[in-house]
Amino acid sequence: MFDDLTDLYQQLILDHSKSPRNFRVLPDANRTAQGTNPVCGDNYTLYAKVDGDIVKEIGFQGSGCAISKASASLLTESLKGRTIAEAKNLFNKVHDLVTTGNLDGDVGKLAALAGVHKFPARVKCAILPWHAALAAVEGKGETVSTETEKE
């Protein structure tokens, strides 16, 4: 009965939401972007240090639900050391994963986000930090909102 729930709130997700990794302001960040969900008030700021084409460091601050916070935490672990093109590619994979449950290749720990696709109302939570991260590393530096994400 709770199968869907335990798919959504896997141990890894609960762990990352309670003890988020890279949960800090990067003092020497050269890229930042904010992500907000006006519906629930989730609000994250992503900080990245991009050197040439490489995401050298990435951190985040903010607050929100377990899904958004765990997604942001997992994101920082996944994007560190990647090129901007790789980050964009990973964004697309995560987007597919949380909307369809389909896993395209090895995404490591991010596979824990697969359970989200059974909860359409929570897709925005999972993808919010990814929108912000992409805006940051691509140097758009804008506030992104989940309202640009289709229902």
Binding site: F2, L5, Y9, K18, C40, C65, A66, I67, A121
Partner: peptide, 14 residues
């Protein structure tokens, strides 16, 4: 404490 309202609502819905 420590549990976001949306997580409460998702579990309650189930």
């Amino acid at each position: 404490d420590g549990i976001h309202a949306h997580d409460v609502v998702t579990v309650a819905d189930q």
